[in-house]
């Protein structure tokens, strides 16, 4: 019975996302050195990553700095951050929403783990 309910919910999710809303939203520009997250209702979004000591939580202060990796929101609700100048390497990252919620990048299919969380991974060539 539970399997049927589970399958029904997943089917509902897929059809909800797929039927009348199948057309994907357009990105503003091709911005290869930027991270984007469309989340219009959020009060704050940060990028926590290996490159910024996960917002400072694994550095001297041990506190997530509310300014570290802070993304800027435009009128459409799109949060952006520029990664220009990041040294080459492999980095894990996640979005930190409203000061308590970790989410992976929904439009980055490559994932990794950080402290038991599923996060995203990005490779910077230079």
């Amino acid at each position: 019975m539970m399997r049927i309910i589970t399958a029904a919910i997943i089917l509902l999710l897929l059809t909800t996302a797929g039927c009348s809303f199948l057309t994907p939203m357009q990105k503003p520009l091709d911005q290869p050195n930027r991270l984007l997250l469309w989340l219009p209702g959020a009060s704050s979004v940060q990028v926590l990553s290996d490159w910024n000591d996960w917002g400072g939580s694994v550095a001297a202060g041990g506190i997530i700095d509310p300014v570290s990796g802070r993304m800027e929101k435009d009128e459409s609700g799109l949060w952006t951050i520029d990664l220009e100048g990041l040294p080459g390497g492999v980095y894990r990252y996640a979005f930190y929403v409203n000061g308590y919620k970790w989410i992976r990048d929904p439009v980055n299919p490559e994932t990794a783990e950080f402290e038991g969380r599923t996060v995203s991974i990005i490779m910077v060539a230079k």
Binding site: A17, F21, L22, T23, M25, W38, P106, V107, P109
Partner: peptide
């Protein structure tokens, strides 16, 4: 496998 999409209608879908 994973997939993600944000639709024009404002539906954000995420699957792993």
């Amino acid at each position: 496998a994973s997939a993600g999409m944000i639709s024009e209608g404002g539906i954000a879908t995420d699957m792993i």
